[in-house]
Every structure is written in structure tokens, then in C-alpha cells.
Design a protein around this nucleic acid. Structure first.
Ligand SMILES: [Mn+2]
Ligand SMILES: [Mn+2]
Ligand SMILES: [Zn+2]
Ligand SMILES: [Zn+2]
Lengths: 146, 146
DNA sequence: TTCGCTATTGTAACTAGTTGCAATAAAGAG
DNA sequence: CTCTTTATTGCAACTAGTTACAATAGCGAA
């Protein structure tokens, strides 16, 4: 709830308007316990606000992402998914089984410092996705052993 | 040219077919000096092979990416772009001016080792994009000084 | 409260990307 | 070279995402 007031103030202070559409979408993301794609957000938004359109969902998700209130991520398969911006983290996804692991941003802090000193770029990506193989899917062919 | 023979052999050995469509698209990427999006690949392919369809371009780019012969990347704005898989590298993109820097994969090697020891995941992302601000765009308001 | 400005929304047309299915054509066997 | 198998393509219908523009509605000022 206080998060909502926080967002309201932030929007006001930046000269943007606080609309019911934005509040509804923000609340949906706050109450979600996973990443949601735009269609899922749209479907949930229909309950709270029947008139709201898909175009607005897409626009609002992009807007809230620009404002830093929402995080977006490409998780394989080209689809963008969203979540409320809380703790800074990234994702490791297994190409074989799809299992996803969350990792603390702190693990990337040193890399970002390295970027800064070697290139001057101040990187701020807070929701990067890395692909590879999880421990199980790396396992040597267990069937060969038997 | 030898790269083409290499790809041909690899496809054969994996049980896939070597089609003119695949060869045309592969050559287009080999001759390109930048990332290309699917539409750009399609347009260039039209010259060499008028009958080729957009659906095939999308499918072929995804296929070649799966085979590790092509690298894909999300560079802001949702569009996927492709390039021939050569040296392993990643990108730093400025959110303000869009200027893009290529960085050697070696800079990420330590991070990937860290992922392995702390999570067991063997990460192999070879074309990751990081966003932030380039040195120029970080500059304190120069107008204030005057 | 009322008014005016203009950011934001809904609409609808548009572009981008995906997919089921039948036709085509690689490529190995004979 | 011819035949057979089946991976791949083209087609066309579909889903996903974007955008121009006019209508709506925040919100600051009076
Ligand atoms: Mn996340
Ligand atoms: Mn690249
Ligand atoms: Zn796995
Ligand atoms: Zn810049």
C-alpha cells in the first residue's frame, strides 16, 4: 500500500499523471508472485477495470519500466515479462529444462565496476537474463553407466 | 567461403539439410558488417532468392541461432537482431544516445565461473546486452558551468 | 468549484512474428 | 540415375505488439 503512495508521489513529482489504469496495473504486479507477460496483466486488469485495453497495458508496462517502477526481462522465447521493481536481481535460465534461478545483483557488482573502469560506461541493467545448463541438465548420460 | 563449407558439414553431421535458403541467409550474415534484423535479412535475401518468404527467414534465423552459427541479441526496442557467430562478445548500450560498445567475452569469464561455483549453472550466453550511460551522457550538466 | 491545458486513453488500422498443413525437395539407398 | 523418406518450405491464417489520431480526463490555476 505504501508502495502505491510512493509511486503516486514519484509520478507527480516527475510531471506525469496518476491514472486508474496505471494504478491497477501497478497493483496487479505488486500482488503477483511471478513474472507476468502483457496478456496475463491484461487478463487480470479486466477484472478490476473492464474497459481497459491491451494497447494501454503495453504502453503502461513500457512506461512504468522507463520510470524504474517495473522490471522487464526477456526469458527465452522472445516474450517480455514484467515484475514489480523490488530487490535488484538477475536470472539464470536452463536452456534444457527451463528451470530459473534468481541471483542477487551483488554478484554482478564487480563486473559493473569493471565495465566502468575499462569502458567508462555506467551500466545499470538490474534484470539481466543468462542462459546455460542447470546442474541436473549438465549431468553426464546416466543411462550410459548402467 | 570456408566458413560455408564448415557450416555445411556441421549441418550434415547433425542430420539437418543444407538448403539454398539456409545458405543464402548465412551468406548475408557473413557479408554484413553489423547486426541485421529479420526484415533487413529478408530484403537482402530477396535479391539472391526472390521466392524466399519472411516466415522462412524467421524460422531460419531461429534455427541457425539454435545451431550456434548465428548470434541473436535484444538491443532495446524489443527488436531481435542477428549476426554471424564469430568472436564471443557482448554489448554495452547507452540508454541516452544509443551508442553501442562491443566488449570481449573474456571480461565476463570470471562472472561465469562465479555462477558455476555459487549455483552450479554452466552459463553460456555469448551475446548479452547491458544498458547504462556512456561516458558522454553521464557528464554533469555542462551548461551549468558556463 | 470551475476552467483550460495537455498527458493519457481508446479505437482501429497497421506492422511484426508464429504456426498448421500440404507441397516440395534434400539426401541416402539401391 | 531413380526412388523413398521425411526435413524443410511456402502459404495463409493467425497472434502479438505498435501507432496515429481524436476523445477523455488528470490536475494546477483561478
Ligand atoms: Mn525477475
Ligand atoms: Mn554483436
Ligand atoms: Zn535444466
Ligand atoms: Zn550516450
Amino acid at each position: 500500500m505504501s508502495e502505491n503512495l510512493q509511486c503516486t508521489d514519484t509520478l507527480h513529482s516527475r510531471g506525469f499523471r496518476v491514472t486508474p489504469q496505471r494504478m491497477v496495473i501497478l497493483r496487479i504486479l505488486q500482488e503477483a508472485d511471478t513474472h507476468l507477460n502483457p496478456t496475463e496483466v491484461y487478463q487480470r486488469a479486466q477484472h478490476a477495470m473492464p474497459g481497459l485495453t491491451e494497447a494501454t497495458v503495453y504502453r503502461t508496462l513500457a512506461f512504468l519500466t522507463d520510470q524504474g517502477m517495473v522490471l522487464a526481462a526477456h526469458i527465452g522465447s522472445g516474450q517480455l515479462v514484467y515484475e514489480i521493481a523490488g530487490h535488484a536481481h538477475h536470472h539464470l535460465i536452463c536452456r534444457a529444462c527451463g528451470y530459473t534461478l534468481e541471483i542477487e545483483h551483488e554478484l554482478l557488482a564487480e563486473l559493473y565496476r569493471l565495465f566502468k573502469v575499462s569502458t567508462g560506461y555506467q551500466i545499470d541493467s538490474l534484470h539481466t537474463t543468462f542462459f546455460g545448463l542447470c546442474p541436473e541438465c549438465q549431468a553426464p548420460e546416466l543411462n550410459n553407466v548402467a
